[in-house]
Design a protein around this nucleic acid. Structure first.
Lengths: 243, 243
DNA sequence: CGATGCATTGAAAGGAGTCAACTTATGTGG
DNA sequence: CCACATAAGTTGACTCCTTTCAATGCATCG
């Protein structure tokens, strides 16, 4: 049983109910556990060495930089999420990965991954599902940037994060602990920190959510969902599909 | 040799040099060829039946709709691209797919796909590479929406499309035929058709690109690349990596 | 205790949206 | 083959959301 109630296991269980042997197999895919300090990139654009990790604790963000000096955060990863799975097949990494807090992560060797796939197609399916879900989140993020205004975008972001954290046992319908600064929010939502600050105040004064001192609190979940046009279908959370 | 110079084969060859047997295998993964009229969705959000296709001719777009009535186009697919590969593992489709022109596409059955994977890991790698590349394009699109202004965004879009089309033999450094209306561009770039029109005029008057009568013409490729901050590393085009 | 990072607020400027009119294709039926 | 309908492209004037610039408060930390 030891080590079987990890965030990753919780998450995958939302898709397939994993057997004891599959859990063993999943455990064996975790290589050396490493620790990274906040702020120094784990992976940087153009890097040739490709590595993937499973995040055990802490938060990271993946982002791309622009010539003008700005940056766009593509996604945040929370415990249970994979890092760098996508560009495993690329010649060079196409994005940066930066720890937002101190993080612990297990390295995943490509050989072990493929090995696990060969032994259990069900496990392979679960991991590919997780990858598809990550991509679906990127797509929904894209929709936010393209068609939602600052309030809707911020509301949507806070809701999605809540849903993801709840899935791994780090959040509830009331709220969650969130280590992100307003600068990080701004870089993720395509806004300025100044404007994020204003929007956060508006949402708080409207009695919808508050985000202060590292704590997100939902005060009117239904209202927030309506404002953000939030539909968690894209997270595909409906509980184990494969029994 | 027949049927081996398809757009898909050309594209995959940019990543792995496929052997004759692998080409055979790839060919066998193509199921029934179907034709779809312009404008009527091939897949719609919430649809339970999941199907994937390889686009043989014509253009399609994948998009999501919002409660307010607007829509955001996530990506366009051109010949050689997969349709609906991502949500194959989802309970319901999370996006819509609409033909921009009349299209021809071969259905890909999940069983055949997995079968092909089992027979040739190299082919599997090539297809996963294509999927990763699609995701990388979505990410770059997200960066555009978040941090590039209307001119940069439009320029970047036209350049990326050019690179993709060139890879499958449908474009050159001088330009390409493009069946997209300004309304479609607007829905993809998170702008209004009115503003797209103005931006297109500015780019034309600056002597960078023109897009008229279904034809994109690069007049100052270097200038356009500089304006858009375009770096095609994310397309991972460097020519066959696995020999 | 000064330095640094993060949060907060105000005033002014600007880029993209909205509204509205008009033109230019394309196409269909009488 | 013309008449009319419809879709797509073009342009101008005005509005508004978000940015920019600037200043201030409040923590934490070496």
């Amino acid at each position: 049983m030891r080590g079987h109630d990890t965030p990753l296991v919780r998450k995958l269980n939302a898709f397939v109910a994993l057997s004891e042997t599959e859990l063993e197999l999943l455990g064996r895919m975790h290589g050396r556990r490493r620790s990274f300090p906040r702020g120094r990139d784990i992976v940087h654009e153009g890097q040739v060495k490709r590595s993937a990790y499973v995040l055990a604790s802490g938060w990271v963000c993946s982002y791309k930089t622009l010539a003008g000096g700005g940056r766009q955060i593509v996604d945040f990863q929370v415990p249970g999420d994979f890092l760098g799975l996508r560009s495993l097949l690329f010649r060079t990494a196409d994005h940066n990965i930066e720890p937002v807090t101190r993080v612990e992560a297990s390295e995943v060797l490509i050989a072990d991954l493929l090995d696990g796939f060969a032994h259990s197609p069900r496990l392979a399916t679960a991991i590919l599902w997780a990858a598809s879900r990550d991509e679906a989140m990127v797509v929904e993020h894209l929709v936010s940037l393209g068609r939602r205004n600052a309030q809707e975008r911020t509301a949507h972001f806070l809701l999605e994060l809540g849903a993801r954290l709840t899935l791994v046992g780090m959040g509830t319908a009331d709220g969650y602990a969130c280590p992100l600064s307003q600068y990080l929010l701004a870089d993720a939502l395509g806004l300025t920190a100044v404007h994020i600050n204003r929007v956060l105040r508006e949402l708080r004064e409207a009695g919808l959510v508050s985000f202060q001192k590292g704590q997100v609190e939902f005060h009117d979940l239904a209202g927030l969902v309506a404002l953000a046009d939030f539909d968690l279908a894209y997270l595909d959370h409906a509980g184990p599909l494969l029994k």
